[in-house]
Computed example of a mutant assay.
Amino acid sequence: MEKNNKDVKTENIASSEKNHDEHSKKDKETKNSRWNDLNYFNKLNVKNYVATFLLIIVFYFVLSFTFNPNDPFSYTKGIYINILIYVLFSVSLNITVGLMGQLNLGQAGFIAIGGYSAAFISKILVQYNLPPFLQLIIVSLFGGLVAAVFGFLVGGSTLRLRGDYLAIITLAFGEIIKYIIQNLDFLGGATGLSNIPTLLSFSNTYFIVVISIIVIAMAMTSRKGKEVLSIREDEIAAENIGIKLNRVKLYGFALSAFFAGIGGSLFAHNVGILTPDKFGFLFSIEILVMVVLGGLGSITGAIVAAVILTLLNEKLRDVSQFRYLVYAIILISLMIFRPKGIFGTKEFTFAGTKKRIKRIRDYKNNKNEN
């Protein structure tokens, strides 16, 4: 009996050891498979980055061949530069309105601050004969930083406000900035700041705007960007999980104002003269329409909507008095047929495009079979 019990015990121990070895092997296999999947996705990301870089370069050369680069009065080149500037305006406003969920109607004020600051410094730097691209980068960064300081101050003064109250405060800020500039003689007053160096070319505008959008996209996909998105989804839940709302809101307002200031610098060096009446309430609404049309929270949508509406403005130049009527019709149609905008909260990705193409093919194949 004792021998039989010992034999049973040894068999149980051996079977438990075998089971333990089998479980450990399975765990290792699952870990290895997960690690392989992770490496696979990393390879896909590298491919996406390379494809995006090549697409940016190819797109640049394709656009460059559509106009004469030696012609300073090229109409096509002027349209492209305007589109790029308004793309940066739209994407910068999308940070606060779309991604952070805070209604900001004072974006024209930040653009004015960045534009006037950069233009004022640019007129001083003319005597040093710097290369145009270097001078444009220096003054654009300066204009962006000055606008970011005001964005930080506006964000700090509206931390406890949201919704309509926040919209009223930001609207008031934009109007205050406009009337302050009108009464500053060293900025040209009501007549405007003139003789601004026209430093823009298609090449430097294109790469400044593209780099700015890449930085915004990277910032919004970082940990800080996820905190910004959490505020849009639910402020109470975000605060309960330990996110410091005040700090994140200040970050969002400052980042949005910084890139609006860079856009204002490009705008100033494109037109050559700045007048305060350009940066009124309607200018902020015009940019807001682009964000809403593209989809609140979609950087791709903001870009596409800015291109569409800038081209539409150019087509309506002869009947400019009906421009806002067309805007109203577009918005009403959008709210009826696609309330979330063109892209909604989604972004254009290569993986998503492949999936859509595959769905279309599967749908066509199923239809043919039936």
Results as ranks from 00 to 15, higher is better:
21 D>A: 13
340 K>S: 12
57 I>C: 15
328 A>N: 01
284 S>E: 01
50 V>R: 09
307 V>I: 15
241 I>H: 02
154 V>Y: 10
8 V>F: 15
46 V>E: 00
272 G>R: 15
131 P>W: 00
351 A>I: 12
102 Q>Y: 09
363 Y>P: 03
100 M>L: 06
205 T>G: 11
163 G>R: 05
20 H>N: 08
44 L>G: 09
87 V>N: 03
235 E>L: 14
244 K>C: 01
356 R>G: 02
97 V>K: 02
324 Y>A: 10
103 L>A: 15
200 L>P: 01
287 I>N: 05
114 G>C: 01
165 Y>F: 08
337 F>Q: 13
203 S>V: 12
305 A>I: 14
161 L>Y: 12
108 A>D: 03
161 L>D: 06
239 E>M: 10
113 I>H: 01
204 N>D: 08
18 K>F: 12
291 V>E: 06
99 L>Y: 13
340 K>H: 12
340 K>T: 15
91 V>Y: 03
81 I>D: 08
369 E>W: 08
324 Y>S: 14
291 V>G: 10
240 N>S: 14
220 M>N: 01
317 R>F: 11
32 N>E: 09
134 L>M: 10
345 T>M: 09
246 N>W: 13
92 S>F: 04
317 R>I: 14
51 A>K: 15
363 Y>E: 14
344 G>I: 09
179 Y>G: 04
176 I>H: 02
310 T>N: 00
90 S>R: 04
102 Q>F: 07
329 I>H: 08
200 L>A: 01
214 I>A: 14
245 L>H: 05
249 K>P: 01
368 N>P: 03
51 A>V: 07
42 N>C: 11
76 T>A: 11
97 V>A: 05
284 S>P: 00
338 R>Q: 12
304 V>T: 14
245 L>C: 03
104 N>D: 09
277 D>A: 10
334 L>H: 03
301 G>S: 08
87 V>K: 02
174 G>K: 07
355 K>L: 13
23 H>S: 11
101 G>W: 00
197 P>K: 00
352 G>S: 06
73 F>R: 06
194 S>R: 07
11 E>V: 07
66 T>G: 05
112 A>E: 08
272 G>F: 15
46 V>S: 06
318 D>P: 06
231 I>M: 12
175 E>N: 06
328 A>F: 02
171 L>H: 04
275 T>L: 11
203 S>N: 12
216 I>W: 10
215 V>R: 04
